[in-house]
Design a protein around this nucleic acid. Structure first.
Length: 573
RNA sequence: GGGCCGCUAGCUCAGCUGGCAGAGCAGCAGACUCUUAAUCUGCGGGUCGCAGGUUCGAUGCCUGCGCGGCUCACCA
């Protein structure tokens, strides 16, 4: 992937005077460009004058400029030359500031078909919509000596342009033939249907609005290279319509979730991303630093403890939908930054959260796909309520694991773990594990992967649920569920623990876990405990992984396919 | 972190056992007034991911590194 960034022209192609002007102008811009490139753009591929040159000092020497010229491809040079000519002729496309669209491609096609069906078009005449203007990117050219066809792509799709020399005159027609794939144009004209049946815009005027300086990927195969697709998502969006569709659908899902909650009187709030203590989940945080405070801070791993403070404060129903950051591995289901919604509702419990979860997800499914049944990677998933409910203990037994109803002590559980080969699933040394740890391990080993249709797994061990209320009558278990779809956890909810004295004990137990080597044990947040002392009503709370829900609803194999700019290592070398 | 695979023209891909680097699209020049992967004629275009090594000779073999993908492990 070899690409140039600085504007360089070939001297021989232009008048010397023009040449001087352009070199001066572009040289003065180039330092700015360098800054931009260093911030977020693509670094130059090899060791080079550009890398060595101090940033923001002097413009590169003429020698360095010529060096730069060497690393443009032939096609990049041609496009820069075309741009230079346009600018010399006073037709700088980058000087254009606005273009008013009357329509987008899809609505134009819909309107035209509606007109044809309306029966108002006189016999023997073709339908027409006069006075339209559209804008977009040129995706392909079928040019002829006196008439050409162009595929124009805008936000909603493509529409064909018909360009005829009779409408524009020979000079303008010749000018248009210098346009390239990837250029952005605005046209005016009327809509008609060609003899071959394609709804098209018969162009009366056409204006270049932006020159594309880089050749587009191939029109037929498009952009396939996964790495380039993720690194340069803008190209992926241009070339792959299904990618555009995926992200439009993601937006619909997010909107549907907000609508659902807003209509149930939830208040959307924003809690801190920069945190003194990263708590509320079992995960390692990213560490950052405030210069002003000379203080180490963490990026949040959950919003839970702040949202519960809002409940203490009396908001009753709150949610925060936003990014969380977990300093962990990356794979098809995990991106270091991901979007989660957490919501809390006073005066209900985890069963209330189940109903909310079913309702919310099936609502999003309908809004995004039109149905509650969705095909995911060849498997039909049914999101309509009610979802299956099963206790963790029953699920383990059902899928071939041991019967934990027969186990009462940690010793028995540890013996069982050895017997059933569960050591590999445990985070701690076997001797430090409780019955709860081993039940959880057994669940992950036997049950999890089998939970294909949406399922609530209820009643988690207290040991692994430090923010959750215990079950009445069984202090070893809590009122917690996780929702599983296609073997993946998508939601986690509790009857929230609101007893500050018990909560402090649970945090202290987590501190002991940390000493036993669990570097993901929950961190103690004393102010949060203080807030519970003020008094939190009985409350149900839930977190839902938005990216994972989106994956199911857009049939994405990898989480990177639903995140516009997934985390990547820098592209060096 | 382990294993496997990939990295060749702007893009999509060939490239045999180590012997002058290829095609299609795109680009350039020309023809063509209803094309749609338009067509026809001609022409350019390469740091074969990077660095070493072996060899008379390396895109190919060896070693190391980089980035990506899949997978296992870790991890919600």
């Amino acid at each position: 992937m070899k690409r140039g960034h600085k504007a360089v022209i070939e001297a021989g192609t232009l008048l010397p005077v023009l040449c001087d002007t352009l070199f001066t102008r572009w040289s003065s811009m180039s330092t700015e460009w360098d800054d931009g490139i260093r911030q977020g753009g693509k670094a130059p591929k090899k060791g080079s004058a550009q890398e060595a040159a101090p940033v923001g000092v002097n413009p590169p020497s003429a020698e360095a400029e010529m060096d730069e010229a060497q690393r443009f491809s032939e096609q990049q040079r041609v496009r820069r030359e075309k741009l230079a000519r346009l600018q010399a002729e006073g037709r700088d496309p980058f000087a254009v500031v606005r273009f008013d669209q009357t329509h987008h491609s899809a609505e134009l096609k819909a309107a035209f078909e509606a007109l044809e069906k309306s029966g108002t078009v006189p016999e023997g005449q073709g339908a027409r919509i006069e006075g339209v203007s559209v804008a977009g990117r040129i995706m392909s050219f079928r040019d002829g000596g006196k008439a050409s066809f162009v595929d124009l792509q805008d936000r909603d799709g493509r529409i064909q342009l018909y360009i005829n020399i009779d409408d524009l005159g020979a000079e303008e027609y010749a000018h248009i033939k210098t346009f390239d794939r990837g250029d952005i144009v605005g046209v005016t004209g009327f809509v008609f249907r060609t003899r071959r049946g394609e709804i098209s815009v018969h162009v009366k005027t056409i204006q270049l609005l932006t020159k594309g300086l880089e050749p587009l990927p191939e029109k037929y195969h498009g952009l396939q290279d996964t790495e380039v697709r993720y690194r340069r998502r803008y190209l992926d969006l241009v070339m792959n319509p299904e990618v555009m569709e995926t992200f439009k659908r993601r937006t619909k899902i997010v909107s549907a979730i907000r609508d659902y909650l807003d209509s149930r009187e939830f208040i959307e709030v924003e809690t801190p991303i920069l945190a003194n203590i990263a708590s509320g989940a079992a995960a390692r945080p990213f560490i950052t630093k405030s210069n002003a405070l000379n203080l180490q801070l963490y990026l949040r791993i959950a919003t839970e403890l702040y949202l519960k403070r809002c409940i203490v404060g009396g908001m009753e129903r709150v949610y925060d939908m936003g990014k969380n950051f977990r300093n962990e591995g990356i794979d098809i289901r995990h991106n270091p930054e991901f979007t989660m919604i957490e919501l809390y509702q006073a005066y209900t419990d985890y069963k209330g959260m189940m109903e909310l979860c079913e309702g919310l997800v099936s609502h999003a499914a309908v809004k995004a796909t039109g149905a509650t049944k969705v095909n995911y990677q060849g498997t039909e998933l049914e999101f309509a309520a009610p979802w299956r409910r099963v206790t963790m203990i029953d699920a383990v037994k059902e899928y071939g694991g041991p019967d934990f109803k027969l186990i009462s002590t940690d010793e028995e559980a540890r013996a069982l773990a050895t017997e059933r080969g569960l050591e590999g699933e445990l985070k701690k040394k076997l001797k430090d594990c409780t019955k709860g740890d081993i039940l959880n391990a057994a669940f992950e080993k036997f049950a999890e992967k089998n939970l294909i249709q949406p399922t609530f797994v209820m009643d988690y061990p207290t040991d692994i649920s430090p923010l959750t209320k215990q079950k009445p009558g069984d202090p070893t278990m809590t009122e917690r569920f996780e929702a599983f779809i296609y073997g993946r956890e998508v939601a986690n909810a509790y009857s929230e623990l609101n007893d500050p004295i018990v909560q402090l004990d649970r945090f202290r137990q987590q501190a002991r876990e940390k000493e036993l080597g669990d570097d993901e044990a929950y961190a103690l947040d004393e102010d949060f405990v203080s807030s519970l002392e003020v008094g939190m009503p009985p409350t149900g709370g839930m977190g839902i992984g938005i990216d994972r829900i989106v994956m199911f609803l857009v049939d994405a194999y990898s989480i990177r396919d639903v995140i516009l700019f997934p985390t990547m290592k820098p592209d060096l070398g």
